[in-house]
């Protein structure tokens, strides 16, 4: 697995900035192995039964990609949004038990199991959440993106408010509605 280098990521981010729709898909695809590798690394040496938070995974991947201060603001947003989508795909694939990686290292499998567990611990059914999220995306793409960042990266709302440029109060209000809608769908 070749490791992503910062230059390649910056290139893709710039593509996204320039409105290249494929660049986003490429970045999401490229982030998946990186996130898995981070999961593997973080899980090594952990006691059994340990649970990993998705935030730790994404932070680790982010730090690995941008060892210094990281790309400027606009790019961080694209990266986080892409990471959220990548994280969602990995976890949903994993939850469905049909990971596309044939030889999934033990550490990685354990790590993803433990991330799933961390959702279960808090009572979240990921597959149902995923479906509800897809439903939401059909009529409110913006809140669907917020939901991805909130659920699959674990970003706090105030950070999302900065990333998405939505005033915090507005975001809190809209998110409370979107969340209620999603959870209502899962009842």
């Amino acid at each position: 697995m070749t490791r992503l280098d910062e230059a390649a990521v910056v290139e893709m981010l710039r593509g996204i900035e320039a409105g290249d729709a494929e660049a986003r898909a490429r970045l999401i695809a490229a982030l998946q192995p990186e996130l898995r590798a981070c999961a593997d690394r973080l899980m090594r040496g952990q006691p059994t039964g340990h649970t990993l938070q998705p935030t730790a995974l994404v932070n680790e991947a982010y730090l690995k990609l941008f060892a210094d201060d990281g790309p400027c603001f606009g790019n961080r947003r694209h990266l986080m949004v892409a990471a959220a989508t990548a994280m969602r795909r990995i976890l949903i694939d994993h939850a469905r038990g049909k990971s596309t990686f044939k030889r999934q290292p033990d550490g990685e499998r354990l790590a993803l199991d433990s991330v799933l567990l961390s959702y279960e611990d808090t009572g979240i059914d990921l597959l149902a959440t995923d479906e509800a999220l897809s439903g939401l995306a059909e009529f409110d793409a913006e809140m669907a993106r917020v939901a991805e960042l909130r659920i699959f990266v674990g970003l706090p709302l105030d950070e999302i408010s900065v990333l998405e440029g939505i005033p915090l109060r507005t975001l809190e209000r809209r998110w409370s509605v979107a969340r209620a809608w999603m959870m209502g769908r899962m009842l």
Binding site: T122, I124, M183
Partner: peptide, 12 residues
């Protein structure tokens, strides 16, 4: 009140 990534959740 809950602490999950989802925010407030009904506790089961």
């Amino acid at each position: 009140e809950g602490t999950g990534p989802f925010g407030k959740l009904p506790a089961e």
